[in-house]
Computed example of a mutant assay.
Amino acid sequence: MGKKLRTEEFVIATKKNLFILIGALSVTNLITLSYFLFKEPKQYSYVYLSGKSSNWQIDDYVVSFLPDNHFSFKRGTLTFIGTGDNPLGITTVEFEIYDHNNVNFARGVNFSEEVSNNMKMGEGEGFENNPPSISKIEKWYVIVRWAGKEEKIELNLGPPSLE
């Protein structure tokens, strides 16, 4: 009779501990769930820029507006669309991106010896704490230099025009 009583006490104690454990886990899960459900959502948006000159075209250059008042720029493809020999892979092709204040904030160089129709434009973060407005981004432009030549490409919101 003594062993049977101890076994019943053990089962009762184990059930109590199990209920306490389940209760504690439920409370922590509810706290975690409420954190994700009620936290302030972060705003994130982006715009695509493109542009075209007589020899070059820029597609899918992305400006991302990030939380905490920052912005980044990334991707983008610089493509040779001119007539004659494609300079990519034959000579050095450089590009510089300028903002609405005519300040150069990004650049890239194609050092590849492989002939290609296009090059990626790289990525980075804006140095301003206040991201530029759309009206300022519409004033951005790119200077492309190759083989002693230079062209300016005005950047526009959205995909390139299909002229």
Rank of each mutant, 00 (worst) to 15 (best):
S133N: 15
E8Y: 09
N156P: 09
G82V: 02
V27H: 05
I58L: 03
L88E: 06
I12E: 15
T83L: 13
I90S: 12
T83K: 11
S161Y: 07
L21K: 07
E138A: 14
N110P: 13
Y141I: 07
F19P: 02
L66N: 10
R6V: 11
V109E: 13
K52M: 08
R145T: 10
G124W: 01
V47I: 02
N118L: 03
K16L: 15
L33C: 09
P159L: 03
P159T: 04
P131S: 03
T14F: 11
G84D: 02
P87I: 05
E94C: 08
Y35H: 14
E9D: 15
T7P: 13
G23Q: 10
E138D: 15
N102A: 10
E138H: 03
N55L: 04
M121L: 01
T14L: 15
D59M: 07
F19M: 08
M121E: 00
L78H: 06
Y98L: 06
E163N: 12
K15I: 12
G126T: 00
E123H: 04
G84F: 08
E8T: 11
L37N: 06
I12Q: 09
F65H: 00
N29S: 14
G126L: 01
G89E: 13
T28G: 03
Y61K: 07
E163F: 05
I137S: 02
N129E: 06
S64L: 11
K149Y: 10
L88G: 04
E8N: 05
Y98W: 07
V115M: 14
E125T: 00
F10K: 12
V144P: 08
I81G: 02
S133P: 02
N156S: 15
Y46E: 14
I90Q: 10
G89A: 13
K52L: 13
